[in-house]
């Protein structure tokens, strides 16, 4: 079991001091004095963003002087436009998406990494499992065609000819697998397989990160301008976020329950949320985070990412990552 690094005493003092400073200015006026910040999530509300909900619920952000609104994502709500426009200060993205956006001229930096290990997985029914990349040969895989480079990268990393796999364009939905239209799905470890398990469909997943696919996911992105102009706000936002995720790690069931409670109109299934919350842990928390803290990355992990991104056709340098905010958070 990996334990997350505990925040230093100094961190807490700073935090409390800021909180005290804020609360000292007469409670009713509190809300008025908070700085409004929009945080753009990458998808619909769910325990995927459990740490943020805890930060909000426990007042970690308001103690730091922030009034954070969590903007939900969706199929037609890409993260990059609001962050580029400045309507959102920080967005949740992934290294490959960020690299592509930067190639298109967006001045983004990755300032922290929630998912150390990429959540992409190959899900299959247990009766006809895909346990390792070689099992893919001769199988029908259901996926969005836009993800072909991801499968290509996995094949290259494991010496498999992608032409031996039949790609079937499907919606992002487990039904084609369950109804037998395909043998496996390219999906996230934490969503479609969880849904199948909750619905009683026995399934097997093969995490691509276990086979060399190293792409940071659920990364925090901000513009270069924000990094210089609104640095303090970024630091506060990440501080709250880190505290929230540390709580999440301690009790994922509580995080799942909070997500269901906070979004009664989202139609979240409590069981699925619990399972998803637990399955996220090994992707987000590692020896690295145990040593340095949630969200951390190093030159080595960045180098691995650069290599995999190269296979995806993204030529990037280590400049894409900027750890300075995180260093201030933990400083």
């Amino acid at each position: 079991m990996i334990k997350p690094v505990h925040l230093t005493r100094r961190f807490f003092l700073q935090t409390s001091a800021a909180g005290f400073a804020a609360s000292a200015t007469a409670l009713p006026a509190l809300a008025a004095n908070l700085q409004p910040v929009t945080f753009q999530l990458s998808w619909l509300h769910s325990v995927q963003f459990g740490g943020s909900y805890i930060a909000m619920k426990n007042g970690y952000w308001s103690d730091l002087g922030l009034d954070v609104s969590l903007a939900q994502g969706g199929p037609n709500a890409p993260v990059e436009p609001p962050v580029v426009s400045g309507t959102a200060l920080v967005g949740i993205s992934a290294a490959d998406y960020t690299a592509a956006a930067v190639e298109q001229g967006a001045p983004f930096k990755i300032i922290a990494v929630a998912m150390q290990r990429n959540p992409f997985a190959i899900a299959s029914l247990s009766g006809n499992p895909v346990n390792e990349p070689a099992d893919l040969i001769g199988k029908k895989i259901g996926m969005a065609v836009a993800n072909t480079p991801v499968l290509q990268a996995l094949c290259t990393l494991n010496g498999i000819d992608i032409n031996q796999i039949e790609i079937v364009p499907t919606q992002y939905d487990p039904a084609p697998l369950v109804s037998g239209q395909v043998d496996c799905l390219l999906c996230w470890e934490t969503d479609l397989p969880v849904a199948m398990t909750v619905q009683g469909v026995e399934n097997t997943t093969m995490l691509m990160a276990d086979y060399g696919y190293a792409v940071h996911s659920q990364t925090y992105i901000a513009t270069e301008e924000s990094l210089t102009e609104r640095r303090d706000t970024l630091v506060s936002l990440l501080k709250g976020e880190v505290m929230g995720w540390n709580d999440y790690y301690k009790d994922t069931d509580a995080a799942a329950a909070l997500a269901v409670e906070m979004f009664p109109d989202a139609g979240l299934d409590p069981e699925a949320q619990k399972l998803q919350a637990a399955r996220q842990v090994p992707l987000m928390f590692s020896d690295l985070t145990a040593e340095h803290g949630f969200g951390w990355f190093t030159q080595d992990t960045v180098a691995e990412n650069i290599e995999t991104l190269g296979l995806l056709g993204r030529q990037v340098t280590a400049d894409l990552w900027d750890r300075s905010v995180l260093e201030e958070v933990y400083g």
Binding site: L44, P174, A175, L192, L268
Partner: peptide
Amino acid sequence: GVLTLRAMRGLQT
């Protein structure tokens, strides 16, 4: 619409 998205991905036929 939001519920539909969630239901489809959640295999909640």
